[in-house]
């Protein structure tokens, strides 16, 4: 992967100047490459990785396995697009194996998520069945450990 993308994937808040210095490119070059990535749809956004468990203990996350009836012509895509447009849906994947779509949903309460599944997801045309698994605790999200233990300290000066 391109070094610029890799740096942005690790830390989206790096300043253009820092990125330019690290990659020995001009700031203009960094800006234009970022714009190109954005225009090509390769960079889809920049956001903080938040430990929701610390923020609001009532917040609920669920993984929902969805079995579908494929649509002639559109396959799974048309229904997937409809599901993905719900703001409750955090991520959505077509899977191999025993079910078709894996939907990660977030909500402020259990009731809210249950309501979404019952009323909106399960009732969609093309959805044959759903199985909902609620998250009890998040250990790692988007490549980031949610709890960091105390770090072993290196010597301050060494040869």
């Amino acid at each position: 992967m391109d070094e610029l993308l890799q740096l942005l994937k690790t830390d989206g808040r790096q300043s253009v100047k820092t990125l330019a210095d690290m990659l020995t490119l001009s700031e203009d070059e960094i800006r234009s490459r970022m714009t190109t990535y954005e225009q090509q749809g390769i960079i889809r956004g920049y956001r903080a990785v938040v430990n929701e468990d610390l923020l609001d203990p009532n917040r609920v996350r669920a993984a929902i396995e969805v079995c579908m009836k494929p649509d002639r012509g559109g396959g799974y895509d048309r229904v997937a697009e409809r599901i993905g447009k719900f703001s409750e849906v955090e991520s959505l994947h077509l899977m191999s194996g025993g079910y078709d779509l894996l939907v990660f949903v977030e909500g402020d309460s259990l009731k809210e998520v249950a309501g979404f599944v019952n009323e909106r997801l399960a009732t969609l045309d093309g959805v044959r069945s759903t199985a909902t698994h609620f998250t009890l605790k998040t250990y790692k999200d988007q490549g980031v450990m949610m709890e960091t233990g105390s770090e072993h300290e290196r010597l301050k000066v060494s040869p």
Partner: peptide
Amino acid sequence: DVISLGIGE
């Protein structure tokens, strides 16, 4: 609160 650039590892 020293920032160390003196570490050889």
